[in-house]
Nucleic acid binder design. Structure first.
Lengths: 309, 309
DNA sequence: TTGTTCATTTGTCGTGGACAGTATTGGGTT
DNA sequence: AACCCAATACTGTCCACGACAAATGAACAA
């Protein structure tokens, strides 16, 4: 069982065990226990077996903390502040820098939950700009704004989920419709376990499609060993991995090195995304792509190198 | 760091720490440690700080064990068998029951990694059958076969990933193209944290679209509290949750009850999917849907009930 | 600015004991 | 035999708390 009903006074209150809190906050059980030991928060009730029972207010404060820590605050400095102080910290974040008006229009539609017109606006931008510019300009800007706004608490998680679904719909549709896909190089595209963001992958797939490369998209969270096995099965030249800012740079580099150790030298490995944007140098045998232009150059380079033979 | 290079004899060998093994096998750190304590497997090397270093063969055996346990074997009975015995156990599973020839054709294309023609076959089936029949017949059958074949080791994980991506492409495309979406009831569609399977959600969305209901799809893994907040924001009448066979029935029922406790009585909650197919009775205030036909009746019933007013 | 060193903070890993929840088994009853 | 319920065995999760690696921030030199 994941939760219990406990009656306190006259109002029934839902309680969460440690596994449910881990699931809903993303904080590991170890972390939850060590915070309690060190900082005295959270201080859950215990059931008759001395197991932790977290209250809803505790869970909500933990979610605020998680948000602030992701943004760069240190746990020890903020963990014992009140909920209202934390809320203030979140809303006192710098307001969004100037956004282009056409982006602002879409954001307003999303915030007003006007699903239909948001979709139409995306579709129109795609038509007007073409796939490549749509991805590198509009979607990039929207992603950036939504990420910022989410950190600042101006956008709810469900809005972000909905945004993600609609951009996926538009991109998948456009990728299919792209003419002239399927020539060399053949690229296997996926992310490692823990990396759940799909939009980055679809943006890469769109750029590959626009450049006429063949893309085998495996979706998110493919274990390294399975990538190793997929490379000969689909006869790909390149493995491209995407890392959003949600993973740490060291985890991304470690994953890339692990894969490098398993793949034959003939297969190239490309890595890109927010987590690697500030990486100094690539591990041996890995190509870091810091922008979509980098990727287009890399495709061009690959074609030149492999045309000589 | 997630892995280390350790030289044993003349061949360098990649070693995995316990976090990497948890990530790649899905077995929790607690489980890995307790198996070592009780059964003596896995018995990883230790680094200079006494931390576990798992070898690649250990990791691969753990993945086999995970597969067999998911299929119903008991850990204690199989954990000390050799890899070849385990492989044999997997392949000795009952072969697939008779599949319709048109399904078999698609499966062959997938196994041959003929991506382009697999996509075309799906698209043709959709055109021939229409969205509703395509979902309830073809995709259901394909899902079932792929799941079986994966358990039996006839299909690699990356094949399953690729299958999922392509069915998603086709379904999303078809849902957008469906005419006459957007009338009542308004349904919020998502899954709870831990449930990553998207195809089931898209199948539901397709049926809703075919029935002319308005669907707000939030993708997978929305925490319960966020669902609660999304219901008034998007003014939905019904929350529909999908649970694949990968989650246990008790976890699914607990999640549904938790949500029921947070939502106002006016909002209906529907639950469906593999995990709930064998559930005896629904918790108070939850509607269990055991088939797509159940769902179509439920939509009809909702419309009748709300037309009287 | 950019790098290097050192101190502090923070999350993960270790051990083993306990026990909840689930599956299986065994003994009755239809 | 087929069914049901209680006793038993199995299995994963939870607990405490010590240790320390990795990440971060501060102080300082180039």
């Amino acid at each position: 069982m994941n939760n219990y009903l406990v009656t306190v006074g006259t109002t029934p209150d839902v309680c969460y065990n440690i596994a449910a809190v881990e699931r809903d906050t993303g904080l590991s059980k170890d972390t939850l226990r060590v915070w309690e030991r060190r900082y005295g928060f959270p201080k859950p009730l215990r059931d008759r077996h001395d197991e932790r029972l977290y209250s809803l207010p505790e869970l909500e404060k933990l979610r605020l903390l998680r948000l602030l820590i992701d943004y760069g605050h240190r746990p020890g400095k903020i963990i014992n502040r009140s909920v209202s102080e934390l809320t203030q910290l979140i809303s006192s974040r710098a307001p969004a820098q100037d956004t282009p008006p056409e982006i602002q229009v879409m954001i307003d539609l999303l915030l007003r939950h006007d699903v239909e017109n948001f979709r139409n606006a995306l579709q129109q931008a795609l038509m007007k700009q073409g796939l490549l510019r749509f991805v590198t300009e509009t979607v990039t800007a929207l992603n950036h704004w939504i990420g910022e706004a989410w950190l600042a608490g101006r956008v709810a998680i469900f809005d972000e989920h909905l945004y993600s679904e609609h951009v996926q719909n538009i991109l998948r549709n456009a990728i299919i419709a792209q003419p002239g896909r399927g020539s060399a190089p053949r690229v296997l595209l996926t992310s490692l376990p823990g990396e759940k963001h799909r939009i980055g992958l679809l943006m890469v797939e769109a750029v590959l499609a626009a450049e006429g490369a063949a893309c085998v998209a495996l979706g998110t969270e493919t274990p390294v060993i399975d990538i190793k096995n997929a490379v000969p099965a689909y006869e790909v030249d390149i493995v491209a991995l995407s890392f959003s800012s949600a993973v740490t740079q060291s985890a991304a580099l470690a994953g890339l090195s692990e894969l490098r150790g398993l793949l034959p030298d003939g297969a190239e490995i490309w890595g890109g995304g927010g987590a690697l944007a500030r990486a100094r140098k690539a591990p041996e045998g890995i190509l870091l792509l810091r922008s979509f232009d980098d990727m287009r150059y890399a495709i061009e380079r690959w074609r030149v190198e492999h045309a000589r033979r």
